[in-house]
Amino acid sequence: MKWPAMGYARVESLDELWRALDAAGPEAQILAGGQSLLATLAFRLSAPSTLIDITRIAALKGVSVAGDVLRIGALTRHADLARDALVARHAPMLAKAAPLIAHPAIRNRGTIGGSLALADPAAELPACAVALGATVVLAAPTGERRVAASDFFQGLFTAALEPGEIITAVEVPVATASSRQTIVEVTRRSGDYAMAGLAAALEMDGAGIVTSARLVFFGIGSGAEVARGASATLTGKALSAETIAAAQAALDGDLDPPTDLHGGPEMKRHLARVLTRRALTAFLVPSEQAA
């Protein structure tokens, strides 16, 4: 279908944005990469009065490191994530996640800020943000605030964004020698939304003991689903085939997947168990892997 009629405004600074939002009223929406938003217009699922184009706001761009925080500007595109040296070094999960998102032409436009704001339950980046313990930086005319990613996602396509508020950046704690990060998913075809996916971030001490674990699933619930029970079973123990099995067993209590076109809850739980083993096995020391 053709897009509905709407207004368009382009802004080049946050100040301009606040004025434009004020002028356009509550039915206006922010346009970043547009790779999901513009598709929903073609479904006539949304009908914003005005789209306010923020893609030229310099303050929302760029990737930098300050201390132990990697700051990723909201307009950073998936293609940038995939090839940025700082991302590869300090948040390898994101570098690994980016190529899983759709296809090159989409990755050339889609942005991390847009993906987080949409809170699509099947999307990779919200799950990564939660798994990495990221902080979402939000701005409004009244000022800036920071929300932990785990609090930011509030359910199906729902994020903790106040009206008139936008994401300016994502801050990720930089990976250290003790960090173990990966993302795995099952998709019918390359680039599809996942039937089930797992963003896994562990911290392991020198003795191989898991000091913290965040297993975050996507494509199997109403959002980025933190498997709290499974994560807890890992914490404080050495990673082994037995602890992985215990984490798998704990998933049943963590996940309550809905049915979608690919299958029902039982299949989703099963795939979550498979992904858990596949993700965590990669973190085992080689001798354990062979076993």
């Binding site: 099952v186 019918r188 039937m195 690919h262 299958g263 029902g264 299949m267 099963h270």
Partner: peptide
């Protein structure tokens, strides 16, 4: 079609 669900 022989989907993952049907094979599982």
């Amino acid at each position: 079609p022989f989907t993952p669900e049907r094979i599982l």
